[in-house]
């Protein structure tokens, strides 16, 4: 069975949303930061099991420090969302719980995966302590640079979307 599912990837600017998608779709990474304006859309088929796959239509949304300003048109027909924050910049996760509430309001009944990216730049133990102290719950800690957890998070989302179908 094969289905297409729209997945939006959102979060503050400079957190590595585009890099995560490029790593997942093309297995490439660049250290050079290029701002995304508007939206880039790509597609990748994820095989969940034999004969069972999901086409993820990945909407890479322009980053913003005010999540309420995301254009509603981009969210139309969304099946799942990945919210990305940058583990090296507290400003991208210090209001995470409030940001997630806004996203959940905009995308009712849609699975959301929370990802802390740029793990290659910090000490994992220190980070986990900081996130714990700030009451930040996350699903994955990833690195687009090394590829760590990138496949896993999208595979997890594909599985969730298939279960929802």
């Amino acid at each position: 069975m094969h289905r297409s599912k729209k997945l939006v990837v959102l979060g503050h600017f400079g957190v590595g949303k585009t890099s995560l998608i490029r790593r997942f779709v093309s297995d490439v990474f660049s250290d050079k930061y290029k701002v995304t304006i508007g939206v880039h859309i790509t597609k990748k088929v994820v095989e969940i099991s034999a004969g069972n796959s999901v086409s993820l239509i990945l909407w890479d949304l322009e980053g913003t420090d005010d999540i309420t300003t995301i254009r509603n048109s981009y969210l139309l027909g969304t099946h799942g969302a990945v919210f990305v924050f940058d583990v090296t910049r507290p400003s991208t996760f210090q209001n995470l719980n409030e940001d997630l509430k806004v996203v959940a309001e905009k995308l009712r009944s849609v699975p959301i995966i929370v990802v802390g990216n740029k793990m290659d730049l910090v000490d994992a133990n220190d980070l986990i302590t900081v996130l714990g102290e700030n009451d930040i719950a996350y699903d994955f800690l990833s690195s687009a640079k090394t590829g760590s957890a990138v496949e896993d998070l999208f595979y997890k989302m594909a599985t969730l979307l298939q279960e929802d179908a």
Binding site: I37, G38, V39, H40, I41, E62, R71, S73, Y74, L76, G77
Partner: peptide
């Protein structure tokens, strides 16, 4: 979108 009841959709800044 065509199936939905809304008549007009606008998407800005699509690559």
């Amino acid at each position: 979108l065509i199936e939905s009841e809304t008549k007009v959709f606008k998407f800005l800044c699509i690559h």
